[in-house]
Design a protein around this nucleic acid. Structure first.
Length: 534
DNA sequence: ATAGGGTTAG
């Protein structure tokens, strides 16, 4: 998303970060601002009130830098941060370990993990807060396994972890789906800290154990915050348990909690994943009366909900009538559903908007091409493919993860790097044979390349999630019949894999749970918990 | 006197 905003000088509205609440920030108090010397380059554009009572020029000290750094971190001002770093060195403040941690955290929050690592290595004194800052930075930078490595290194270096460490490490486990590690980390802690408990609830639900998440939620002895509730609602929502999610959502006010924007998003997410169109619309329309402002993500949910239900025109009208500028994700939802419902006109509209925003994702091209292909418009299919080749199309490789015997195994498409790859491929052949007898037909319409049917089927059958599931089945042979195969996907599950896993769950009598980019799919006895609405 | 690290989100 970052590359969409190349000229944005104040990148405070990047989608993954809450806008800087400048008027509420404790760092913009007049007392702090008066301490700053105005001629510093990084403050040149700031219009802060000048004190009329004090005429003395105040010197910048470590505290000044600390406050300013924190402001930079929240506003994602990387160049100002670099300048501050130079100043800190020049003023001889670089031995100040508290200030160094602030700087390290600022780099982490800005996604500059190279600088963060470097600073961490060079710091004369590191304490638990410095470790925490780097671990948290790694988690938010999508490098959870490095975060866990660091967490373990802390132990060997004799640094006692704090509750903050626990929260960051639980976040890493959520990303990795590593419930065993997460459980170990959480169990050492009493459940009276609301933030630790929130992180544990999130960890359990992101690892696929929503009932354990609910246990933590129920057994929490302290005062639940709005985040506690929101996390639980979202947990049920992504597991397709809309009724449990909405039941809790309805209880918020009775429990003295004022629903916030995330609460509404969580409720909409529940509707979205269960196809509860009317209920979702009523939630969406109710927001204004409750004084909660809609943001892009609320629109994202409701547009996706309407689109997937086949109400493409209504989804389109919402995008066109909203007061803020729609972002590409909204059009991508509409495009995705246009493919499902073979709506050429809407697919073309959405594609055009996406292209005009300068987004070149391979998935969007594939969707448009599929819509044409479904109508037999092969010329248009060719045109899309040419267009795709001429552009710098971004392709995110699909990865799947599965835990077996204490280690996490990673697979990519047609992966042959696993030491047991031959057995895995044999297992896939066996699966193909068995599910064909059960009536499976490959969803070859999902393949863009102009190749023969058999090759198309071959292109599908070694998808990373199929390799992971096949490996899981192999490892489960003879194991506890109740324990499911659990797989994590970095992308959305593919349509063909979805069909295949339904067959497998029936024939092999084995439950399969797949976490994809946005939700969980639980395959059991030939059907999926998403009821094919996804 | 005033400083550092933490939770939910299409």
């Amino acid at each position: 998303m970052r590359q969409l905003l190349p000229n944005q000088t104040t990148p405070i509205s990047l989608p993954h970060r809450r806008p800087f609440p400048i008027f509420l920030s404790p760092f913009s108090s007049s007392r702090t601002l008066r301490n700053l010397t105005i001629r510093r380059p990084f403050l040149r554009r700031t219009n802060f009130p000048q004190s009329s009572s004090s005429s003395a020029i105040c010197r910048v000290d470590a505290l000044t830098c600390s406050f300013t750094l924190k402001a930079c971190a929240r506003a994602l001002c990387s160049s100002a941060m670099d300048q501050l770093h130079c100043q800190i060195n020049r003023r001889g403040l670089s031995a100040d370990s508290l200030l160094c941690t602030t700087l390290l955290d600022a780099y982490s929050k800005n996604g500059d993990l190279i600088s963060a690592y470097k600073l961490f290595d060079e710091m004369p004194v590191r304490d638990v807060a410095s470790w925490n800052a780097l671990i948290a930075g790694l988690v938010s930078g999508n490098r959870a396994s490095e975060a866990m490595e660091l967490y373990k290194r802390m132990e060997t270096e004799g640094i006692r972890r704090s509750e903050v460490t626990v929260v960051a490490a639980l976040g890493a486990c959520s990303h990795l789906g590593d419930v065993k590690e997460g459980e170990n980390i959480f169990h050492g802690y009493s459940n009276d800290n609301v933030i630790v408990s929130n992180a544990a609830i999130d960890m359990y639900s992101k690892c696929g154990f929503v009932d354990k998440a609910y246990q933590v939620f129920e057994q929490f002895t302290g005062k639940k915050s709005v985040v506690t509730w929101n996390t639980m609602i979202t947990g049920f929502a992504v597991h397709g348990e809309a009724h449990r999610a909405l039941e809790i959502f309805d209880k918020l006010e009775d429990n003295g909690i004022k629903p916030d924007d995330v609460s509404y998003l969580a409720a909409l997410t529940a509707c979205r994943h269960a196809g509860l169109v009317e209920y979702g619309l009523s939630v969406f329309n109710n927001m204004a009366c409750k004084g909660v402002e809609r943001n892009m993500k609320h629109y994202g949910c409701v547009v996706d909900l309407l689109s997937r239900a086949g109400r493409l025109r209504e989804a389109h009208d919402i995008i066109c009538s909203m007061s803020m500028i729609p972002d590409p994700v909204l059009w991508q939802s509409l495009l995705g559903a246009s493919e499902i419902y073979s709506d050429v006109e809407m697919a073309e509209i959405a594609s055009r908007e996406i292209k005009e925003m300068g987004v070149n994702n391979d998935g969007d091209f594939v969707l448009l091409s599929n819509v044409y292909a479904a109508q037999g418009r092969w010329k248009d299919v060719g045109r899309v493919r040419d267009d795709m080749e001429s552009k710098q199309v971004k392709k995110i490789p699909g990865l799947s993860y599965i835990e077996a015997k204490g280690t996490i195994h990673e697979f990519y498409n047609s992966d042959k790097s696993h030491e047991q790859w031959r057995e895995i491929y044999e297992k896939i052949d066996e699966i193909r044979f068995k599910i064909r007898e059960d009536g499976y037909v490959a969803q070859t319409g999902l393949v863009l390349h102009d190749i023969g049917e058999e090759e198309k089927e071959n292109a599908l059958c070694y998808h990373s999630e199929k390799l992971a599931v096949a490996y899981g089945l192999m490892m489960m042979d003879g194991a506890d019949e109740e324990s499911p195969v659990r797989v994590i996907n970095n992308l959305r599950i593919c349509g063909d894999c979805h069909v295949v896993f339904k067959h497998i769950s029936k024939i092999y009598k084995r439950e399969i749970i797949v976490r994809d980019r946005v939700r969980f799919h639980r395959f059991k006895d030939g059907s999926c918990s998403c009821r094919d609405f996804w």
